[in-house]
Write a protein that binds this DNA or RNA. Structure first.
Lengths: 119, 119
DNA sequence: GTAATCAGTTTCCTTTTGGTAACCAGTTAC
DNA sequence: GTAACTGGTTACCAAAAGGAAACTGATTAC
């Protein structure tokens, strides 16, 4: 029993790392926008309603530091910046699917479980 | 390609649900403490350093609403409350393992990947 | 009466987060 | 020169989250 607990505890740091990367309101939305093909700052900004310039800027930096996206400056008129998703970001898709499946079942459990309401 | 995008978008709500349930600083720590066998408010509080009474109270309510734990009041001296994990909470273990695995690999990628530094 | 314990709640205050909008830099067009 | 577009940064203010400590209420013991 104590062993199980210690295994859980050792899971905590990596789990936190993952949640830092995909948690928050915007990170997944931004990643999806880039996966979808949006490459430029203003384009990404416009594709996500209610997302402000300031927050997008911060999130993109975080995501670049986490190697989920790359940032390339292209000189020309006007200077453009290209954001692209990385191979590493693709490894998130499996995690996202797991989170999605649990979320769907959880919602059923919380809202759709009629067997418990038969009082 | 547009299909892939729409699939991602439909994943968003369930993923958010899941992140709401396990995200944040304390929820997993509290769940682990209860999995470990801590049953009482003060016991859980003492088992997690830096966790305040106020936040624990709020988190326990959230977790009860999400059916991850049950709360039972036991009259006696003094009145005691028992928190226990549910069967439903056990379904999180698989999700946590996935998050852990991705976190471990991610950390390797970010900090331990020497093959890229050979410039 | 006082004291102590459990399980929280409430209050006050600080820190963090987030939004809005102005602003800067570089370049092209007029 | 001005305007317009890009990709952001900075400053200011409001909302939300979080910590510390006091407080409630029930009960038992003295």
């Amino acid at each position: 029993m104590k062993k199980e607990h210690k295994e859980c505890m050792s899971a905590l740091l990596p789990v936190r790392d993952t949640l830092d990367v995909i948690g928050g309101k915007w990170k997944l939305l931004i990643l999806i926008s880039i996966w979808e093909g949006n490459k430029h700052f203003r384009g990404i900004e416009r594709s996500i309603p209610k997302l402000s310039t300031k927050v997008l800027s911060k999130e993109l930096k975080d995501m670049e530091a986490n190697q989920l996206i790359t940032r390339t400056v292209i000189n020309g008129f006007p200077v453009r910046t290209e954001y692209r998703h990385t191979e590493h970001s693709n490894t998130l898709k499996k995690v996202i699917m797991e989170l999605q499946n649990w979320g769907i079942n959880h919602r059923k459990k919380i809202f759709g479980d009629k067997s418990e309401i038969s009082n």
